[in-house]
Design a binder for these strands. Structure first.
Length: 791
DNA sequence: TGTTCGCTTGTTTTT
DNA sequence: CAAGCGAACA
């Protein structure tokens, strides 16, 4: 391999690093995928490492797919051939282990994977079953606590023993019940996947040893996004004798809320003593202006190791910062600017990035109106649409009879005469029998169910049994087709209102996804969709003990990947693990997506919209660590741009249907003015004159200590006094009149009763108030909705 | 039993 | 503004 021709010296150092742990701090656009893929190829070609001894783990299927393709190309494999290097996501890695050895940690082979919606539904039931008040112990809050716990490998038992205070003690009960219901249904949630894989490797010594003996080189991408459990999984998989290459960038860590531990990268050497650290600071993506501006921004963060990116691309254009009126005006400006740039760039070379999915609506409207082709990442995610979830639920019930959650979902969908009363009787009977709903359906006597209800249940049972028989012999598309027909779903969607038509279209798309999946899976090598994990561990064995030790030499026996999973399970796993970004059509016009989904992507022309206080940083993320993460989020957005970067900010915006005055993001003053070119929309309504009220423009604030001349407000956008935000505009909603809430104050809430204010973050309508209520403990409220009164 | 209507409620990011 | 929920109606 002619590395000097392909890579810069820093990259070469990381690629040709010998054995032991290394951390590669790879700045945005510094070629980290290049480093990972070349290292894999180098290990194989130059060091003679067998491919199955190498694994690369990423966070998205898309990243994994690209990586795999590049590795295979570097290795000079013929078109379509795949090396035995494992390339896949953390979740797929864990899932693979669980599909094989899950029984050792309490899940049976056909287990179902719950998505967020399923989890919420299950948690609601858990809270109900525990007779907790869902308005104080909200399913969302408990779920978030449970997720945190699982990410830190804390189970219901330890959670309960460490719980203190009103909320936690109740959450502990809900957690316990939730987990019980989950396992009863033979289900696993997202966080369980990692946690159970860890448990499996910790507890099954022989399996762990075999894994460690086999796997010598592990490369982990986006290391800054790993959580505690994932770090543990990495340690267990690689063992003391293997070599870990962790690649990441602390400035691009944007998943704290999902448990990502920044310390995993900041304090890498603590977990892996003697680790070598390489820094990649040469950027191949952006202009120097973009690097300087984004670098200046992120240098305001405390939590970083620090690096300085450089490029030989030259300064390039300045960054356009535009102040718009409202979101419609913002969208028009962006669209107009895109039209101008379309002379030199194709639509697909442009992207609009936003903080929240809700922002895409106005943008979409305008792009539609102007007939600018675009593709939206996310929105309502395909596999979360009700009609798709219904069909998936049918498939799950076929595969996993104990899946009570899915069974409940489809029991009367489409409507088949199993009403509330009938369903309730069935649930109670199952409860009394202590068995799964499906078994109750088969054996229960169903007292007190009407004749109609009884026969409806019977028909449903026969339907499922018949489909299950079919599933045992027919291929996936055939089964799905039959599900659609036999269940009456086809009829349900054959109405000709627009809504039914759209849903039918989705169902068709789902069916064709199944067909495609089926064809790919039938080929000798793996479907690109799925990603291989086969080579990793010992071959599957039908005897229940993977532990007995006769496998000398099985190191060299690569496994037909996934061959021990049936196609239906593989398809369901695929459906559970695809993400929005995986389906991004880069050839379908302008891309519109959230900042989170944009990570890892790059575009010649980038717009980051909605740079307003409360949106970016989001009003829900105001704690110091959260604020730093919001800053990183903007940093990630800015560094997606290759040549032209635009930032926009509105003076008012519709939020939840009401116009709200907005202030420019506090991050804007952190950008060096030298790199900016600022414009303001005519539609931007002047509010009031800062000179009269003695309020600084936000740029002025930086230099407010000195009476230095500052840029004129009209060119920079005027920021009104924060204390009076939302009160001066006739368009603003009526604020809580006259109630200035401050800490220590005693207040009364219309439904939550009396409490004491603990903290106030922000101000005006978007202020977030933390109150400790006598009855329900600590709650965070939005001032706009709180309706608090002194008391 | 199934559908529709009006009410309340509450807002981030996603493997 | 929307989603979600319960109650009233067909």
């Amino acid at each position: 391999m002619d590395l000097p021709r392909l890579l810069n010296p820093e990259q070469i150092a990381a690629v040709t690093f010998g054995d032991g742990p290394q951390l590669v701090l790879a700045g945005a656009g510094s070629g980290k995928t290049r480093v990972i893929t070349h290292r894999i190829a180098w290990l194989i070609a130059e060091r003679g490492v067998e491919p199955y001894r190498i694994a690369a783990v990423t966070f998205t299927n898309k990243a994994a797919g690209e990586m795999r393709e590049r590795v295979d190309r570097l290795l000079g494999l013929p078109e379509g051939a795949r090396s035995e290097v494992f390339v896949g996501t953390f979740h797929r890695f864990a899932l693979r282990l669980l599909r094989r050895y899950g029984e050792r940690v309490g899940v049976s082979p056909g287990f179902s994977i719950l998505d967020t919606q399923d989890q919420l539904a299950l948690m609601k039931r858990a809270i109900e079953d525990e007779d907790l008040d869902p308005s104080t112990v909200t399913p969302r809050a408990v779920l978030s606590a449970v997720s945190d716990a699982k990410n830190r490998l804390i189970g219901p038992g330890r959670f309960a023993s460490e719980a203190s205070g009103f909320f936690e003690t109740r959450a502990a009960r809900a957690f316990h019940r939730y987990q019980k219901l989950l396992r009863q249904a033979n289900g696993v949630d997202f966080d369980d996947m990692i946690a159970l894989a860890v448990q499996l490797l910790e507890q099954e010594e022989v399996l762990r040893q075999r894994m460690q003996r086999r796997l010598r080189y592990l490369l982990v991408d986006e290391f800054q996004d790993t959580n505690f459990a994932q770090l543990r999984l990495v340690e267990l998989a690689i063992g003391a004798g293997g070599s870990l290459t962790a690649v990441g960038d602390e400035d691009q860590s944007i998943y704290r809320w999902r448990g990502a531990e920044l310390d995993n990268i900041l304090r890498f050497e603590d977990a892996f003593p003697g680790a070598t650290v390489h820094k990649l600071e040469r950027n191949y993506r952006s202009t120097q202006n973009i690097l300087d501006a984004s670098g200046a921004l992120v240098s305001n963060n405390e939590q970083r190791r620090g690096k300085r990116l450089w490029t030989d691309h030259g300064p390039g254009e300045r960054i356009a910062l535009h102040y718009a009126g409202d979101e419609g005006d913002e969208a028009r400006w962006i669209a107009a600017r895109m039209r101008q740039l379309h002379d030199s760039y194709t639509w697909t070379e442009m992207a609009i990035l936003v903080r929240t999915n809700a922002q895409t609506r106005a943008l979409e409207d305008e792009l539609l109106r102007q007939r600018i082709p675009y593709s939206l990442v996310a929105g309502v995610r395909f596999y979360e649409r009700a009609e798709i979830k219904d069909l998936v639920a049918y498939l799950r019930v076929l595969r996993n009879p104990r899946d009570n959650l899915s069974l409940r979902r489809i029991l009367n969908q489409p409507p088949r005469g199993i009403g509330k009363a009938t369903a309730q009787a069935l649930f109670e009977e199952a409860e009394a029998m202590g068995s799964a709903l499906w078994d109750a359906l088969r054996f229960a006597r169903l007292r007190g169910v009407s004749q109609r209800g009884r026969s409806a249940l019977l028909r449903f049972r026969e339907l499922i049994e018949q489909l299950r028989t079919l599933a045992a012999t027919q291929d996936l598309p055939t089964v799905l087709q039959e599900v659609i027909e036999a269940t009456g779903y086809a009829r349900l969607l054959s109405k000709d209102d627009a809504d039914a038509q759209a849903r039918l279209e989705n169902v068709r798309e789902f069916l064709s996804a199944a067909q495609e999946f089926n064809e790919d899976a039938g080929a000798t090598d793996l479907p690109a969709l799925v990603g291989s994990i086969g080579a990793l561990e010992a071959p599957p064995r039908r005897d229940p003990d993977p532990g007995d030790d006769e496998e000398d030499g099985d190191d060299a026996s690569p496994l037909g990947p996934e061959e021990d999973s049936d196609p239906l399970t593989m398809f369901l796993d695929y459906v559970s693990l695809v993400s929005d970004i995986d389906g991004l059509q880069t050839d379908a016009g302008v891309s519109v997506m959230t900042l989170h989904s944009a990570k890892g992507l790059e575009f010649p022309v980038v717009f980051v919209a909605g740079l307003e206080d409360g949106l970016l940083p989001h009003f829900n993320s105001q704690a110091p660590e959260e604020l730093e993460e919001e800053r990183r989020l903007l940093y990630v957005g800015m560094t997606r741009a290759e040549r032209r970067l635009h930032l926009t900010s509105c003076s008012r915006r519709r939020i939840a249907g009401r116009y709200q005055d907005q202030e420019p993001s506090p991050f804007l003053p952190e950008l060096p003015e030298a790199q900016l070119e600022i414009t303001e929309s005519a539609a931007r309504m002047p509010r009031y004159d800062s000179r009269l009220t003695g309020v600084h423009s936000f740029f002025g604030d930086r230099t407010s200590a000195a009476p230095a001349p500052r840029p004129t407000p009209s060119s920079l956008g005027v920021a009104p006094a924060s204390a009076s935000r939302g009160r001066t505009s006739p368009l603003a909603p009526a604020p809580n009149p006259g109630v200035a809430v401050r800490p220590q104050m005693s207040v009364r809430h219309p439904t939550l009763g009396r409490g004491v204010v603990l903290a106030v973050e922000g101000d005006g309508d978007s202020a977030k108030i933390t109150v400790f209520f006598d009855r329900s403990g600590k709650r965070r409220l939005l001032a706009k909705y709180a309706g608090l009164e002194p008391g």
